[in-house]
């Protein structure tokens, strides 16, 4: 039975046998505002994310990327359609703490130190204080903020705050990470370092990631698949499978790579709505 995990990793993932990390089926989201004005944020979204898979959502501002992430996180409910996470309803998955999340805003508690912020989920879930200390020290080292353990968020730059938020999302080693433009506030150099770190982390932990971004190179560098969305009402325009090798092979050299640039221009074409004729790896929908 020792080969079982390896076997399951290569099996095609369907909703019936091994539960997908995220399964979004026929989802619409309509916001009803004041005076019954409605905004259709999402329309007819179908998306499956396999366990351990890295999927990016990319699209123009206001196309519903954050909304889709919120539906998966059970912070909002779809108007129609269903969302399941590891085979459970989104609500049950949230209660069972199946995912970690990093928001578009860092959302740190200003009255807690960096350590206190990272330990918040552990504290709420009754993890002992010694284990908490060890875990937060480990995570601080990971995001390169060990020197700021006892600082308060107002003493950190925006990018440093975002790194704390990422560490917090990783605190309970979730099988699924939901990240909403987590690197948006970072400078280019830190951004690339964090991208490399994130690839490493997800490879080590085997976590699936749904990653919202505005940056095409970032999406290509990080992802197994890039989901390109159209402007409002948000629909999935296309899904591009990026074949740049396993996480272990995704290093700094990759950014200079021919195949990398090819994928970048494919995503760009898809984003701008031009028909990408004859490109490989595109799932036509």
């Amino acid at each position: 039975m020792s080969e079982a995990p390896a076997a399951s990793a290569t099996q095609p993932v369907t909703a019936t046998d091994v539960a997908a990390a995220v399964q979004v089926t026929g989802v619409d989201k309509v916001f009803v505002g004041k005076k019954k004005a409605t905004v259709t944020a999402l329309e007819n979204i179908d998306l499956t994310v396999a366990p351990g898979e890295f999927v990016s959502l990319i699209g123009p501002s206001g196309c519903g990327k954050s909304t889709l992430l919120r539906l998966i996180a059970d912070l909002d409910t779809p108007s129609t359609g269903s969302v399941t996470v590891f085979g459970k309803t989104a609500r049950q998955a949230r209660i069972d703490q199946e995912y970690g999340i990093a928001f578009q805003q860092a959302g740190l508690l200003p009255w807690r130190t960096v350590t206190g912020n990272i330990e918040l989920p552990l504290e709420l879930h009754k993890v002992g204080s010694a284990a908490r200390k060890a875990r937060s020290a480990e995570l601080l080292a990971l995001v390169g903020l060990s020197d700021f353990a006892e600082s308060y968020p107002d003493q950190l730059s925006g990018g440093m705050q975002q790194r704390v938020a990422i560490a917090r999302a990783l605190a309970e080693s979730p099988r699924l990470l939901l990240m909403d433009e987590p690197f948006g506030a970072l400078d280019e150099m830190t951004r690339e370092r964090m991208q490399t770190e994130l690839v490493k982390i997800t490879a080590e932990t085997g976590a699936a990631v749904v990653f919202v971004t505005h940056s095409i190179p970032e999406a290509v560098y990080l992802s197994n698949r890039v989901v390109v969305m159209s402007p409002r009402p948000g629909r999935i325009r296309d899904i591009l499978t990026v074949s740049l090798g396993s996480a272990a092979e995704r290093n700094e050299q990759l950014r200079e790579n021919e195949a990398f640039f090819e994928n970048v221009s494919k995503v760009r074409e898809l984003l701008h709505g031009e028909a990408p004729v004859g490109v490989r790896g595109v799932e036509t929908r």
């Binding site: 996180a73 912070l75 949230r94 209660i95 703490q97 999340i101 928001f103 805003q105 959302g107 508690l109 009255w111 918040l120 989920p121 504290e123 709420l124 879930h125």
Partner: peptide
């Protein structure tokens, strides 16, 4: 709202929410 969302994500109880976010805030 981002703090409310965060505690909702952690499936925190009403009392945990009060203690860790609402009162300090």
């Amino acid at each position: 709202p981002v703090h409310r969302d965060l505690l909702h994500v952690y499936a925190a109880s009403a009392w945990q929410m009060t203690r860790t976010v609402t009162v300090p805030g």
